[in-house]
């Protein structure tokens, strides 16, 4: 069931990359600035497709959001030392792959609190280390890997630009956001974020 979120009782259906759907409360979802930008005021007609992320990752992310529903609004980074036992367990039970997937999903969904805690956790890996010790903790890509990554990013950027242009044309034709179908709305927002990201990268 999906409808405009006005109370924490409202549930939204989330669709993962596997095509599976599951419920998330409106209160939990509202911690995502991406969701707020897309659906908060207009609601969603059908499952919300976060299809770049698998079910396990999305469930993990929204598990965090559900848990922190009653915490006060995020007001800046908190030190790991201040994290609750639940928070620490949440992070500790993830393997590295899951941790990276959660950061990526949290970054896309723009969940400030979770992204910040994850990033601080990574920064702590490097705390007080010299160069020799840092090399043991992190891997840096080789020149070839970087080149390959750059090519992929260029392709993605070109594709995003093309889609963005198309979406802009569509948006001109559409009078109100409410009239856009969910899939297209997700794509439009994603394009906006991509453009924001690209302009940020170019700074």
């Amino acid at each position: 069931m999906t409808s405009p979120a006005s109370s924490s009782e409202v549930k939204y259906l989330i669709e993962s990359s596997e095509g599976n759907t599951f419920d998330v409360s409106g209160a939990a979802l509202r911690q995502s600035n991406t969701f707020n930008a897309m659906f908060l005021n207009i609601g969603a007609d059908g499952p919300i497709p976060f299809t770049d992320y698998n079910e396990a990752t999305l469930k993990k992310v929204f598990e965090y959001c559900e848990h922190s529903v009653n915490e006060e609004n995020y007001s800046g980074p908190k030190h790991q030392d201040d994290l609750s036992k639940w928070d620490l367990n949440f992070f500790n039970e993830m393997d590295q792959k899951m941790f990276i997937d959660v950061i990526n999903a949290s970054n896309f969904l723009d969940i400030e609190r979770l992204t910040s805690y994850c990033c601080e956790r990574i920064a702590r890996m490097l705390r007080g280390k010299n160069t020799q010790e840092m090399i043991k903790v992190i891997t840096l890509p080789t020149a070839e890997e970087l080149e390959a990554k750059q090519k992929v990013e260029e392709k993605k950027a070109a594709a995003a630009k093309k889609v963005a242009e198309k979406a802009a044309e569509t948006a001109e034709k559409t009078e109100t956001l409410e009239e856009l179908p969910v899939q297209q709305l997700v794509q439009t927002t994603r394009n906006k974020l991509t453009r924001k990201y690209l302009s940020f990268s170019n700074e």
Partner: peptide
């Protein structure tokens, strides 16, 4: 295992560096 730092999205990387 060593953490593949540069696989993170750029906005997350900025956040990591801001915590350093």
């Amino acid at each position: 295992t060593p953490f593949p730092l540069l696989r993170l999205p750029r906005l997350a990387l900025i956040s990591v560096f801001m915590h350093m």
